[in-house]
Amino acid sequence: MTAKIEIENLSHIYDEKTPFARVALDDINFSIQTGEFLGVIGHTGSGKSTFIQHLNGLLKPTSGRILLDGHDIHSDKSLLKSVRQRIGLVFQYPEHQLFESTIYGDVAFGPTNMDLSADEVDARVKDALQLVGLSEDVYEKSPFELSGGQKRRAAIAGVLAMKPEVLILDEPTAGLDPVGKDAILNQIAEMHKVVGNTIILVSHNMEDVSRLADRIVVMAKSKIILSGIPTEVFSQPERLTAVGLAAPPIATLMDLLRKKGLNLPSGIFTIETAADALEGIIG
């Protein structure tokens, strides 16, 4: 694997040189590998939104650099537009940003602004909508006619249609019911498998992150305090609770059982693996 995005000594101070100055990112060094699925967790105010907004140049570092394929994204202002096409950012509640009168038109907005042929735009819109699981009968519908989950998927498709090399999703399942949540996450996982793009998923849901991510970054107080594969990160429940986070519920339950003397392996996050492990001991 090679580094897709390198973050070097990144610091960001909001309202610098005013009485309201606040450090949001404090000397972050981190590399994101090509094709990896990275989970970012951290409580509100930990700096994770500030962090991801630096990755596609929406915010400019107070100090430090962001390198995309080895090039500083702020070295040349004319590059920023292409950076934002190569690194797609899906904000929280992206359905609030739908603005066209039809779903098709909304998804087509991004690629249309990329100097692509009409055929290419059409193909991309259809591919993107298919990837998020929306069928042809929604093409001409108004966003107002779709359910919350469908609108969310349409909004994600709008970013996918630009074929970003890196896709950043900020809490893509907030406010969805369990079925809608699983549908979106499974489609993201499936797309990652098919397209092989780099994905950065910001979430409060530890269970989802543990299930999907290759690697997890934990942010607290403007810094990255922990990173590693899910098993490593969630095997340190004390460090997570100390910063207002919690391991996935099943991992917590397994931890309590271990303390009662049950000999359970580490790295159990899902009901199925937990059932397997318990069956092995007492079945």
Partner: peptide, 19 residues
């Protein structure tokens, strides 16, 4: 289309496996 608490879900799976 709903979930149950993790402990309830795990207990259910174990019962189905005869525990």
């Amino acid at each position: 289309g709903l979930d149950v608490p993790s402990a309830t879900g795990l207990a259910n799976v174990l019962r189905k496996r005869g525990i």
